[in-house]
């Protein structure tokens, strides 16, 4: 992770590190030893409930601090926001990671929204339809997420505000096995990681 990103977004970093610590095993590499504490105020996709009976040490979900509602969207929880997602996904052709004209339009709108909420940090998830193989799709999803990220960076969005992760075909948005579902599942999906 970039140093400037860490400086700009200490709260986000702490959240991630808190998650990392919670999820780590006994034998832990130095990198995951976090600096301590301000309160974790958000949930992220990596967060899970602590489910018995396994002795899983999951991080606590600390409710958001009440913040002054300068904007309507900002007053809502990340879960609420991400459930409806104010950011539109970029859709891709089969086995392609090229951002087409429609995708560029979507990214221009997403860039606008990011400028409106300049503290938000996004994770761009790369997703694939189920027709590719699980192995290759992980790299393809990565390409899709990076393509969306790179386009946003050319629009002036700081790279530090954009993370990427590929889920390959692991998390389809529509599990149906038809062209309509496949088209929905080939996407760069935007998740607000911290506000």
């Amino acid at each position: 992770m970039s140093a400037s990103g860490s400086i700009l977004r200490p709260a986000a970093l702490v959240v991630l590190m808190a998650l990392a610590v919670g999820a780590c095993a006994k034998k832990q590499p130095p990198i995951a030893r976090p600096t301590p504490p301000p309160p974790a105020e958000t949930t992220t996709p990596a967060e899970r409930p602590a489910p018995p009976p396994q002795p899983v040490d999951t991080p606590p979900i600390v409710p958001s601090e009440p913040t002054l509602a300068v904007e309507d969207l900002d007053s809502r929880s990340l879960d609420e926001l991400n459930r409806e997602s104010p950011f539109q996904p970029v859709l891709f052709a089969f086995d392609s990671y090229e951002v087409d004209a429609a995708g560029q339009t979507v990214l221009n709108q997403n860039a606008e929204l990011m400028r409106k909420y300049p503290t938000w940090v996004l994770t761009i998830e790369g997703h694939c339809d189920e027709r590719g193989t699980a192995e290759y799709n992980l790299a393809l999803g990565e390409r899709r997420a990076l393509a969306a990220r790179n386009y946003l960076v050319t629009l002036g969005i700081p790279a530090e505000r954009l993370r990427t992760v590929s889920y390959g075909k692991e998390f389809p948005f529509d599990p149906a096995q038809n062209e309509e579902a496949y088209a929905k599942n080939r996407r760069a999906h935007f998740v607000i990681t911290s506000k």
């Binding site: 998650l19 999820a23 780590c24 034998k27 832990q28 590499p29 990596a46 992760v165």
Partner: peptide
């Protein structure tokens, strides 16, 4: 994806320890 992003882990299944060599 236990830390959010994909990473390679080695599980020593008879010791219950985990390594994270690719960091």
């Amino acid at each position: 994806y236990r830390r959010g992003a994909p990473d390679v882990f080695i599980s020593n299944i008879y010791q219950g320890t985990l390594e994270n060599p690719a960091r």
